[in-house]
Simulated scan of single mutants.
Amino acid sequence: MPVELKIKFRDFFLAPNLMSLLRVALTAPLAYCLALDTMTGTLIAAGILLAAGITDFLDGFLARKLNQISALGHILDPVADKLLAIILIIELIIFRDFPIWLAAAVLLRDLVIMLVGLKIVKRRHEIVASNLSGKYYFASLAVLLGAYILRFDFGISIFLWVVILFYCMSVINYGRVMAAEMRGTPIPLFKDKVLYKLGRMLFVVTVLSVFLYRLYVDVVAGYF
């Protein structure tokens, strides 16, 4: 739901926000290891991406568990995600033939969300929290980027479609926010029905299970 824009300096030292800042710090070593374009660099880059994913989970978990939800956290979390994704995508275009059309779609979505978010902050002095489909979208994008890092073709072929699915869902949800902003009506809350949530979670778990199995067979077993 929308959060009042009120940032305090001490919020930088809250545990969830430190996790987001750590994710920003991991961007440089991840980019460096991938640029080495060696087996060791590839494995380290994949490990750093996994660590970044863990911090992405922890910042939200700690914010709820410790009751440390803040306006700064609502800004840092998506900024850290987008910074990591954009830099990694640029490198993957150079070293892994990441599709230009998908990179353009990712950048366009992030740009539109940022512009709409800034407009809402300016007019309403509140921040719109990310929705569930947006979180699923970024999680699936992170797995896809990991598959490109490892040159895991089977994982790429699966998660490319998963990313497209959640991309469309998140665009529709954020479109509701844009429509509300243009009409001057209250920002709609994202209420997912229980069965809808369960269906999406089962879908993700199923695809992820297949992905991990083939990752072991095609990549891990090949290295060792």
Results as ranks from 00 to 15, higher is better:
Met1Gln: 12
Pro2Thr: 13
Val3Tyr: 02
Lys6Phe: 02
Ile7Asp: 04
Lys8Asp: 11
Phe9Ser: 14
Phe9Cys: 02
Phe9Ile: 15
Asp11Cys: 06
Phe12Val: 12
Phe13Cys: 08
Leu14Gly: 03
Pro16Tyr: 08
Pro16His: 11
Asn17Phe: 04
Leu18Gly: 04
Leu18Cys: 09
Met19Gln: 02
Met19Arg: 03
Leu21Arg: 01
Leu22His: 01
Val24Ala: 11
Cys33His: 13
Cys33Gln: 15
Leu34Met: 05
Ala35Met: 12
Ala35Pro: 01
Asp37Asn: 15
Asp37Gly: 03
Thr38Leu: 06
Met39Arg: 14
Met39Ile: 11
Thr40Asn: 11
Thr40Glu: 09
Thr40Gln: 06
Thr42Asn: 02
Ala45Asp: 06
Ala45Asn: 10
Gly47Pro: 05
Ile48Pro: 07
Leu49Met: 15
Ala51Met: 12
Gly53Thr: 11
Gly53Ile: 10
Ile54Arg: 03
Phe57Asp: 05
Phe57Val: 14
Leu58Trp: 06
Leu58Lys: 03
Asp59Val: 07
Asp59Gln: 04
Gly60Ile: 08
Phe61Glu: 08
Leu62Phe: 13
Ala63Met: 06
Arg64Ile: 06
Leu66Asp: 03
Ile69Cys: 13
Ser70Thr: 15
Leu72Asp: 06
Leu72Ile: 09
Gly73Val: 11
Ile75Glu: 11
Leu76Ile: 07
Val79Thr: 14
Val79His: 02
Leu84Trp: 01
Ala85Tyr: 06
Ile86Val: 14
Ile86Trp: 01
Ile86Glu: 02
Ile93Phe: 02
Ile93Leu: 14
Ile94Phe: 06
Phe95Leu: 12
Arg96Ile: 09
Leu102Asp: 03
Val106Thr: 09
Leu107Met: 14
Leu108Trp: 01
Arg109Asp: 08
Asp110Tyr: 02
Val112Glu: 04
Val112Asn: 05
Val112Gln: 03
Met114Glu: 00
Arg123Leu: 10
Arg123Tyr: 03
Arg124Phe: 01
Arg124Ala: 09
Asn131Gln: 12
Asn131Val: 11
Leu132Glu: 09
Ser133Arg: 07
Ser133Glu: 10
Lys135Gly: 07
Tyr136Cys: 14
Phe138Tyr: 09
Leu141Trp: 01
Val143Leu: 12
Val143Gly: 00
Leu144Pro: 00
Leu144Gln: 01
Leu145His: 01
Gly146Cys: 06
Ile149Thr: 11
Leu150Asp: 05
Asp153His: 11
Asp153Met: 10
Phe154Pro: 00
Phe154Gly: 00
Gly155Arg: 01
Ile156Phe: 04
Ser157Glu: 13
Phe159Val: 12
Ile164His: 00
Ile164Ser: 07
Phe166Lys: 04
Ser170Leu: 00
Ser170Trp: 00
Ile172Tyr: 14
Met178Ala: 15
Ala179Arg: 13
Glu181Met: 12
Glu181Phe: 11
Met182Lys: 14
Arg183Cys: 07
Arg183Ala: 15
Gly184Thr: 12
Gly184Asn: 07
Thr185Gly: 03
Ile187Cys: 07
Pro188Phe: 06
Phe190Glu: 12
Lys193Tyr: 00
Val194Glu: 09
Leu195Phe: 14
Lys197Glu: 07
Leu198Asn: 10
Leu198Cys: 07
Leu202Phe: 05
Phe203His: 03
Val204Ser: 09
Val207Cys: 10
Ser209Ala: 15
Val210Phe: 14
Phe211Asp: 08
Leu215Val: 07
Val217Gln: 11
Asp218Asn: 10
Asp218Ser: 09
Gly222Glu: 08
Tyr223Ser: 10
